[in-house]
Every structure is written in C-alpha cells, then in structure tokens.
Simulated assay, not measured.
Amino acid sequence: MLRHVTFRAPSASLVARCTVRSFAAHRAGEGSLEPDEEEVKAARKWLANLDADAIRQKATCDVSFSRSSGPGGQNVNKVSSKATLRIPTSSLLPLLPKLIHQHVLNSRYHAAKSADVVVQADDSRKQTDNLNTCFRKLHDLIVEAVRAAVPGETSAETTKRVEDLQKAEKLHRRKAKEYQSKKKSARRGGGRDD
C-alpha cells in the first residue's frame, strides 16, 4: 500500500524564479567557473542563516510511504514506514545559492531522469522519524555542497604565517643559488686569487 502526502510551498513565486536558461546553464556545467567574492560571501551568509526546517517549509515536496525491505519481522510486512521524499529541482534550486547548484545536481540523491532530488529513509519503525531523517539527509547534502563549493575564510594569523613562510623560502632559495654560483665560479678558476 502506497500513501502519498504532498507538501506545497506557501508561495508559488519561488518556483517561477528558477528560469529555464539558468537551470540549463548549470546542468551544462557553465556554472563551474571561478566564483566571485560577492557570491562566496553571500553563500557563507546564507549557510550561517540556514535553518534545518527552511527547505521543509519553502520547497514543494512529495512524500510517499511504502513497506521497507530487509529484516524487521512482521512490522516490515504490515506497516508502510519507509519514507521517500521527492523535491523537484525547479523548486529546490531557487532556495539555494547559485554556487552549490552543480554540487546538488551531481549528488547521489539527484535523479537525472525525473529532475528530482530523491531521499529515502527506512531506519525507524515510525513514519514521522523516517520523514525527519529524509529532511535531515537533505539538510546534510546542502551543507556538504556549500562546504565543497565555497572556500573557507582564511584567518589573519594564517595569512601572516603563510607570508612569513614564503619570505623564508625565497631567502633560502636565494642563498642556495648564491652558494651554487660561488661553487661554479670556483671551479672555473674565477674564485681564486693568484
């Protein structure tokens, strides 16, 4: 027995924001260019303000429950507790920063044929727990995509340390070259005073 529960977004304008052109450009891989600093800052700010329930409240989701497979006794055979969450990418991508669109589309949860993000969970005997697990997996996917696409901020101490190491390396390299130069000139006889 398969039950369908549908969550609809409070605003249909979110779906309209995703233009066909930008979606097709990201699908073709054109979004893989080096991100500019403003996009990176916006993505960091978005991640800092990300609420675990934001996607649940704003995206158009289709949730279905079915019987789990594998061990579990009679409960597995009688109760439809496995949760399957389907979110169309046209509903999900407008909610996310543009930098992570390609990472979401390349994730293992993206079904290319249906253009949906499909997340399943059957860890628990309860439908609500499995549904919450699906949304948690989706949240983890988004956080991992942001961390993969957005470079981390470098602290002032790390920047100073790197600059000091680069200066030390240049000085060491210059001394090594001078030493080699003196060694060669001594072989040629240019370094002896007769």
Rank of each mutant, 00 (worst) to 15 (best):
D53I: 01
D122F: 02
A43R: 02
L95S: 10
N49W: 10
H110E: 02
R67K: 14
L96H: 06
W46Y: 07
L141R: 01
D62V: 15
Y109T: 02
V146H: 04
A156N: 07
D129V: 04
D140L: 14
N132D: 09
R108K: 15
N77Q: 15
A156C: 05
K113W: 09
K58C: 06
C134I: 13
D51N: 14
H110N: 05
D123W: 06
W46D: 02
C61H: 14
E153T: 15
D140K: 11
Y109E: 12
P88N: 05
S66Q: 13
V162P: 01
L47F: 09
Y109C: 04
Y109L: 08
F65M: 10
G152T: 12
A145I: 08
L93M: 15
L93T: 08
P151D: 13
V118K: 02
R125F: 06
V79P: 02
P97Y: 04
L131P: 00
Q74H: 13
A54S: 11
V162H: 00
L47K: 02
S68A: 15
G72W: 04
L99S: 13
K78E: 14
V117C: 02
A111T: 07
K45H: 13
S64E: 14
S114N: 05
C134S: 12
T128W: 00
N106I: 04
D140H: 15
L105A: 11
F135E: 02
R125S: 05
A43L: 05
L131E: 05
